[in-house]
Design a protein around this nucleic acid. Sequence first.
DNA 1: GTTTTTGCAAAGCTTTTGCAATCCG
DNA 2: CGGATTGCAAAAGCTTTGCAAAAAC
Lengths: 150, 150
Amino acid sequence: MTSTDTTIAAGAPGEVARLGRSTQQRATVLRALVGSEDFVSAQVLHARLIDEGARVGLSTVYRTLTALAEAGLADTVRDPEGERLFRHRPGPHHRHYLRCRTCGRSVAVDSHLVETWAERTATANDFTEVAHTVELTGICADCTTTSPRP
Amino acid sequence: MTSTDTTIAAGAPGEVARLGRSTQQRATVLRALVGSEDFVSAQVLHARLIDEGARVGLSTVYRTLTALAEAGLADTVRDPEGERLFRHRPGPHHRHYLRCRTCGRSVAVDSHLVETWAERTATANDFTEVAHTVELTGICADCTTTSPRP
DNA sequence: GTTTTTGCAAAGCTTTTGCAATCCG
DNA sequence: CGGATTGCAAAAGCTTTGCAAAAAC
């Protein structure tokens, strides 16, 4: 099941409960993810944490991020190279993002239209339990004017 | 750059020319891809060819499929596990598909709405060179009535 | 005192690459 | 011929897993 999935239900109460025991490592990873404005890979997040002096294993980062995604607390996306990227999901519903291919920045976009289109398309084809993934990429204004790289 | 990408230009004439020399292996792979109704991974396609008695290396299948995708002759998609799936693209423009999570069948869907939505969203956010990937999955009618598996 | 979680290293996967042999034109 | 292509095996990533030590409750 893809990450940015309509079928994920993120109940308001007890969200964290699904993550099992609360450990320092999990708190650290979650905090880092929340603090990250944009999509990050497990590897990058791990490197960042190590840099900051935190002692967390890469496996733990992977396990925690996967758990968060399964719990509906994070959106995930596959970058073209197949790497999995994670981003904290603030609201109860999943979001779609527009990401800059040059600097990596991303902004959440209104996807009303896509949501309903997905529903309708599925219904029209006799499909049930629709899920969808949408990835939008482009070059942001900053990167259009200036040269590449942040 | 993701496969199902609006920015890919598939010129009508000389499409095949971009693939370099015409060899038996390439012909075989292309034929297999065209013959395949749905998305297939390089590995599955390779296995299928070997089964049929064709003598093609896995690397060649990868190289050929990648070339086809770059030439705009195939759409590609990442499945949730990160595997790359390929599908022959009949028309000059990229398509979007609705895939059944149970039996794997997929149907091309009309994505007018999404295309324009992508354009507009990007423009509204001062992004240029928009590209997008859309993946729709669900359970098809056949799989809803009968139990799993084709 | 159990039971879960961690972290390391090793394994698993898909995909890519190096390079000699081979094929196409 | 001469350069493009193939195929094998090895390498490269990213991610997962096995298992003993550590932490949580």
